[in-house]
């Protein structure tokens, strides 16, 4: 790889059941020099096509014909954890967005986001960094708050450190990573790491919860 050679374009797959919307997003991405390696109109197509398309990022609508965006996110994560999922939701319904993030999505945008915002989000997600809107940060904060209010069942349950809570709170208050780094006298990278780790803990907690549910309901034994 020489210095002059441009890095390989980001490989993107677009999953949306509205053809007009899908085409518009696809056009924007191609114009911006991204490589659209596949499209799908529903969850079934998305899961069938993504292994061969090998995208870096899947731009995924939450409300698609079954399996829905949340299930697709979880399944993609199971099959290939290196593929990043960016949720693009029309309604931005809180419960759905939170469920998708818990299932493993790395970022979330509402569909009314501008072309520039979408492109920036795809680049961020492709680099492995989460795209947190202040709204999502508020929800994640609330979720950890709810968990710490509940009686501790398992001491190994992931909890946020004070620093992580502080960083997340600032994201929820609309500060950019750069501003947070400045205010807390940290490096930009450290701030990103904190945000990433809150997301990882949330997803880990989701898995712990699912496992506990499975054990309680005897789903882990063969004869249930």
């Amino acid at each position: 790889m020489s210095e002059t050679e441009a890095p390989a374009p980001i490989r993107v797959m677009v999953v949306d059941d509205h053809p007009l919307w899908r085409d518009a997003v696809e056009r924007d991405l191609i114009q911006a020099g991204l490589d659209v390696v596949g499209v799908a109109a529903n969850g079934r197509e998305a899961l069938a096509r993504f292994p061969a398309a090998r995208p870096d990022v899947i731009v995924l609508d939450l409300q698609i014909p079954a399996p829905d965006g949340i299930e697709v996110t979880a399944e993609v994560g199971r099959q290939n954890p290196d593929v990043r999922v960016l949720i693009l939701s029309a309604s931005g319904e809180q419960a759905d967005v939170l469920a998708a993030v818990k299932a493993g999505a790395t970022g979330y945008l509402v569909k009314s986001a501008s072309r520039e915002e979408l492109l920036a989000a795809i680049r961020t997600v492709a680099a492995g960094d989460p795209v947190f809107t202040p709204g999502l940060a508020g929800m994640v904060l609330g979720e950890f708050q709810r968990l710490s209010d509940a009686p501790a069942v398992d001491p190994s349950e992931p909890r946020l450190t004070e620093r992580e809570t502080e960083v997340l709170k600032m994201v929820a208050k609309g500060l950019s990573y750069r501003q947070i780094a400045e205010r807390l006298v940290l490096s930009h990278r450290t701030v990103q790491n904190h945000v990433q780790s809150t997301l990882r803990k949330l997803q880990m907690h989701n898995r712990v919860e699912l496992t506990r549910y499975a054990i309680e309901h005897g789903l882990d034994t063969e004869d249930s």
């Binding site: 518009a24 409300q63 509402v110 569909k111």
Partner: peptide, 21 residues
């Protein structure tokens, strides 16, 4: 209702996006 709302929101977001362009 969600499915219906979602469809309407999609179209509104699309009109907004194309309009801007």
């Amino acid at each position: 209702a969600r499915a219906v709302h979602d469809g309407v929101l999609q179209v509104l977001a699309l009109v907004q996006r194309r309009g801007r362009e």
